[in-house]
Amino acid sequence: MNNMYEQITESLIKGRYTEVAELTQKALDEGYEPKEIINEALLTGMNEVGELFSDGEMFVPEVLVAAKAMASGMDLLKPLLKEGDVTSAGKCIFCTVKGDLHDIGKKLVAMMLEGAGYEIVDLGVDVGPEAIIEAVKEHQPDIIGMSAMLTTTMMSMKETVEALKENGMYDKLQVMIGGAPVSTNYADQIGASFSADAAAAVDLANRLMA
C-alpha cells in the first residue's frame, strides 16, 4: 500500500482529525487524485474501524472520533470530485422516530454506512411518518433506517411502514430498524429488517442492496 495512504488510514483509525486533514491536503498538493484518496485511504480506514468495532476492540466514543477524522478529510475532497468519481453503494435516509430524542446509536450507524460508501441523509430525531414520506419523495432513497430507544416509540416504526405501503413506496426500498428495545421478531412483524448494532448494519445494508 502507498505510504501516503497508509499514513492517512492510520491517523483516521486513531481519530486524529487535524492530522487527517493535513495529510489529505498534502496528498492533494502532491497530485494525488481525490477519488483515490477516498477509496484507498479514508474508506480503507473506516472499514478497518468497522471491523475493530465489530470485534470489540474499539468502542462507540472511538468510532465517533474516527468518523469525525474521516469527515475532516472528506470536507476537503468532496468539492474536488467530478461526476462519477465515487460510486455510491446506495442512498440511505436515517432518523430516530417520533417521540424519541436518542441520537448516538443512529449517528453511529449512519457514520459506519457513510464509511462503507453509502450516501446518507440524516433527518435527525423525533421524526414522524409524514416527515419520512416527504423525505422519501425528495431523496428517493434505497434504504430507510429508523432507530428507537424506548418501547413507547417503537410503534412509530410500524406506523411509518404502514404509511410507506399506503403511499406505494414500500416495494421500492428497504427498511432497516434498530435500537435497544427492537428485535428481529418485531422487525418481522412490521415488515422491516433488524440490525443489532452499527457494525451489523453495514452487513445488513450490503445484503439488502445485493
Rank of each mutant, 00 (worst) to 15 (best):
M1E: 08
E6W: 00
T9S: 15
E10A: 12
Y17W: 13
Q25N: 14
G31I: 10
Y32I: 07
Y32K: 15
E33N: 13
K35N: 13
K35M: 12
I37N: 09
E40Q: 14
E40L: 13
A41F: 02
L42T: 10
L42Q: 06
M46T: 14
E48I: 02
V49K: 08
E51Q: 14
F53H: 07
S54T: 02
D55I: 00
G56I: 12
G56Y: 12
G56L: 11
E57S: 11
M58C: 06
M58W: 07
M58T: 03
V60I: 15
V63M: 08
L64R: 08
L64C: 10
V65F: 12
A69K: 05
A69Y: 06
A71N: 11
S72H: 11
G73D: 08
L76E: 11
K78F: 04
K78W: 02
K78R: 14
E83F: 07
G84T: 10
S88Y: 08
S88N: 09
G90F: 10
G90Y: 10
K91L: 11
K91E: 03
K91V: 02
F94P: 01
F94A: 04
C95I: 01
T96Q: 04
D100V: 04
H102L: 10
D103C: 01
G105P: 00
K107Q: 12
K107F: 00
K107L: 05
K107P: 00
M111K: 07
L113F: 04
L113V: 02
Y118D: 02
Y118N: 05
E119L: 08
I120Q: 04
I120R: 04
L123S: 08
G124F: 09
G124N: 10
D126P: 04
P129Y: 05
P129M: 08
P129A: 11
A131D: 14
E134L: 10
A135H: 07
A135E: 09
K137S: 07
K137V: 03
K137W: 02
P141Q: 04
P141I: 05
D142Y: 01
D142N: 15
M146W: 06
M149Q: 12
M149T: 12
L150C: 05
T151I: 13
M154Y: 01
T160S: 07
A163M: 12
N167P: 02
M169N: 02
M169S: 01
Y170E: 08
D171C: 02
K172I: 00
L173H: 07
Q174E: 15
Q174Y: 13
M176Y: 06
I177N: 00
I177C: 04
A180E: 07
V182F: 02
T184V: 12
N185G: 12
D188A: 15
I190W: 04
G191Y: 09
A192D: 05
S193C: 06
S193M: 05
F194H: 15
S195I: 09
A196F: 01
D197F: 05
A198I: 03
A199F: 11
A201G: 14
L204R: 11
A205M: 09
R207I: 08
M209P: 07
